[in-house]
């Protein structure tokens, strides 16, 4: 922090430098300030246009826009509830599957992996983060979904049929492989690289003296991870998860391919559903009139949810950067 302030003070100190370089400095400063301002203007512009575009739908439907489950383009009745639930459920499932795996990867890479193995795995994880989401979608639809239908959905449905609770949550009426759970699993694959690499960096930042002291008093690897590393990096791990959640909430193409795209609410996570992003991707091309407003209003809701999640993530991550 100190170094940054020093740099800012430098041009001010010698007053005699009134060469053309001074004008360049002013131009440069204004230009960079303008670039920074542009981001804020863009954000405000996007927010304003979403609210204006979605306003007719909010006005027409009122609170019912959020609570209603009817999405009827015939009679111009729009309710976002199934899409909101689908978005939250898929993102939650993605975290449920993705977070433990990511933590495992990060702990393994920083604490356990032999050096010759560490580098290739780290690179592979970064490469995974760079795979375009449409590739995950195609792979999901053509490779994952048929296998999931044959080896998970159908056997599980046969076992749980008729049971209380699990018979509802895990029973697939038509075992097609497409559904909320499939979308959650694909999303988990997509957020693992993000969470794993952030957590790995966080664990690397922890002063090694802490770890060594713990080993010194006879702690096992598990005890070091559980009682030293996790408490030290705790809040930033939550922040990393929130960043992953932000991605999972807004992911569009991959989810559209595997979620089944049904505009209905189902009590089973094996059944097809839809998310806000997939609904917009599906209908935006052909939407006219109030349907278009309703889709923009959906975008507005997603924008709001993602914004809140990211703000929380920022606060949590920055708090730990202090040490």
């Amino acid at each position: 922090m100190a170094a940054v302030t020093d740099q800012v003070d430098v041009p001010r100190a010698p007053a005699m430098r009134k060469t053309p370089k001074g004008t360049f400095d002013i131009v440069f400063r204004n230009a960079s300030f303008g670039s920074a301002l542009l981001v804020l203007v863009l954000l405000a512009g996007i927010m304003a246009s979403m609210i204006i575009g979605g306003w007719p739908a909010f006005r027409e439907m009122g609170l019912g826009f959020i609570t209603s489950s009817i999405w009827d383009t015939q009679n111009d009745q729009y309710g976002a509830w199934p899409a909101i639930v689908g978005t939250l459920t898929t993102a939650f499932l993605a975290l449920l599957i993705g977070v433990p795996l990511s933590l495992g990867i990060a702990v393994f890479l920083t604490q356990l992996a032999p050096p010759w193995f560490k580098q290739p795995v780290s690179t592979a994880i970064e490469l995974l983060a760079a795979v375009p989401s449409i590739i995950y979608g195609m792979w999901g639809l053509f490779v994952f979904v048929p296998l999931f239908a044959a080896y998970v959905q159908q056997p599980v449905s046969r076992v749980v049929e008729g049971m209380p609770i699990v018979g509802t949550i895990l029973y697939a009426a038509s075992p097609s492989g497409l559904g909320i759970l499939s979308a959650g699993i694909i999303l988990a694959f997509m957020i693992i690289p993000f969470i794993a690499s952030i957590v790995r960096d966080m664990l690397d930042q922890i002063p090694s003296v802490l770890r060594e002291s713990a080993y010194g008093i006879g702690a096992t690897t598990w005890e070091v991870v559980r009682h030293v590393l996790v408490p030290q990096a705790g809040v930033s791990i939550i922040g990393a998860c929130m960043l992953g959640l932000g991605r999972a909430l807004g992911e569009t193409m991959a989810v559209t391919f595997v979620v089944g795209n049904a505009n209905r609410l189902s009590s089973s996570i094996m059944d097809p559903g839809s998310t806000i992003a997939s609904r917009i991707a599906n209908e935006f091309n052909e939407a006219i009139g109030l349907q278009l407003n309703a889709l923009i209003a959906l975008g507005c809701i997603l924008f709001f949810v993602t914004f809140v999640v990211l703000v929380i993530a920022r606060i949590l991550v920055s708090r730990v950067k202090a040490f």
Binding site: I70, W71, D72, T73, Q74, L141, S174, S176, L178, T256, F257, G260, N261, A262, N263, R264, P272, S274, A281, N282, E283, E286
Partner: peptide
């Protein structure tokens, strides 16, 4: 249900595009 470019299908799964 009626006729339109997108309707609320009561059952089934949706694929995107003819390819889907």
């Amino acid at each position: 249900i009626g006729a339109n470019t997108s309707v609320q299908f009561p059952v089934g799964v949706g694929g995107k595009g003819n390819e889907g």
